[in-house]
Nucleic acid binder design. Structure first.
Lengths: 252, 252
DNA sequence: CCTCACTTCTTACAGCGTACAATGTACTGC
DNA sequence: GCAGTACATTGTACGCTGTAAGAAGTGAGG
């Protein structure tokens, strides 16, 4: 798969889909046996259970007891289906009211809400929206999250950029964490086993002492986390740096 | 595609490939007409010119005047080919010697080197290495980049985490920038045209005043950049925040 | 009641990664 | 020098993908 890409089709049609615009009124033929939400929910269940690669038109259709082409009555194509899945997931996110609390707590909570989204729906970190989604879920999410950086003395452009920076961080983290998980399950090898196999091979391959910093720091980091990449640590470390970075802007 | 994933196969074989270990000595049959580097270079040229999705075994083979299956003599599979492409691109990166300069400059230079990598090879931001790559390019890159955060009073774990944080930022930025570019070219629509189409549709769809912050901030940001997502601005803003965040750790 | 818009299904196509078996090459051991 | 065999290369094939095209059936509007 290609990096799954969304919003390939007609923007007008996509927007009406996102907002469930019932514009198609003069219905003449047979009733539809399914619904957009049914299709989106089935695809989401599949993605949650088996990953984004398992979301194929045939499998989603089979889940609903129809044939692949039937879905094209509900959705213009797969790209738009992914859009709908993402906006629906956004719509279902929990949004804590943190008004009045210190800004670091509020921003931390927004990050945590997004982290929870990606933990519940790892596929969501992989669907890439080249353009903003403009659906009800996205709008509600954006409105809610902006409120966490409101009233800090930032101008509008800085608010948008700060939130974007935070969201990019959490999403990048989610992708890396998902990749690391996938590496373990695909290779049927724990990180310890993988390292036990690779360490001696590596040692044989490389000029001893050619990479002094790399080997010292690399093994220190590996020993500290018990693995080459520790998602929990990376999240805490990155978020702390990010908050400190925003603080310079806020407390300027 | 799926998000292109690497390192599916035998780690031993992959490591030997990465380091070009000429262990297979007793060669008995006909000579190979190509070379690993030739295959990797052809695949890289294809990815540079037409994107990662254009890198198919058949197309790479055709470029080399052979048939798809021939490549499997040189490379265990597509995943390993992507590994080799990435490590080769790492190996070719320029690495400025910034010893003695202020740490912010040094870190900024590392970021810029990675930015240039992704501008020359946008596909590189999309191949996801679940495990570290352990090739000569990766090792040289890691060694070089660690030196930029060396001598700042950070311990080994903090050095690794800080560098990882920086690299994750640049890669996430590169993906977003590539996605935005792809959205423009795929839709055959500039951002202005896209917005001109969507703005009225959106206005019709949403309850006026339901998203006050979102509409105010969103349109301010859009107006400031002339587009919904401005990669150059996002990079500068994000890097500035990141440096300020590291500063708190360094100057502690 | 007839018309025809509309849903659904069948079939098909071009493309993917790669398993498998056939073919031909060129080196090693005798 | 020759047989045996390891190896490179190739053709064919399988199961998978998204979706275009057309046939068949349904049910409301005129």
């Amino acid at each position: 798969m290609a990096g799954e890409r969304t919003s390939a089709g007609d923007p007008d049609r996509t927007l009406r889909l996102l907002w469930r615009d019932p514009t198609a009124v003069g219905r003449r033929g047979p009733r539809q046996g399914l619904s957009i939400d049914g299709v989106v929910d089935a695809a989401t269940a599949l993605a949650d259970a088996e990953g984004l690669d398992a979301v194929t038109m045939r499998k989603v259709a089979a889940e609903l007891g129809v044939v692949a082409m039937t879905l094209y009555t509900y959705v213009p194509g797969k790209a738009e289906l992914l859009d709908l899945m993402l906006d629906a997931a956004y719509a279902r996110m929990d949004r804590a009211d943190t008004a009045g609390r210190p800004w670091r707590e509020r921003v931390t909570e927004v990050a945590a809400e997004n982290r929870r989204l990606f933990e519940a729906h790892p596929w969501a970190a992989r669907v890439s929206t080249g353009r903003p989604l403009l659906g009800p879920g996205q709008m509600a999410k954006y409105e809610h999250e902006l409120s966490a950086v409101d009233g800090l003395g930032l101008d509008d452009v800085e608010m948008d950029a700060s939130l974007g920076h935070l969201l990019a961080f959490v999403r990048a983290w989610a992708r890396d964490a998902a990749d690391a998980r996938a590496a373990v399950s695909e290779s049927a090898m724990t990180d310890e086993q993988w390292w036990a196999v690779n360490a001696p091979l590596l040692e044989r391959a490389l000029d001893p002492g050619a990479y002094p910093l790399a080997s010292r720091v690399g093994s220190a980091a590996g020993a500290a986390h018990g693995t080459a990449y520790d998602p929990a640590f990376a999240y805490e470390f990155g978020l702390a740096r990010l908050l400190d970075g925003l603080a310079v802007l806020v407390e300027r």
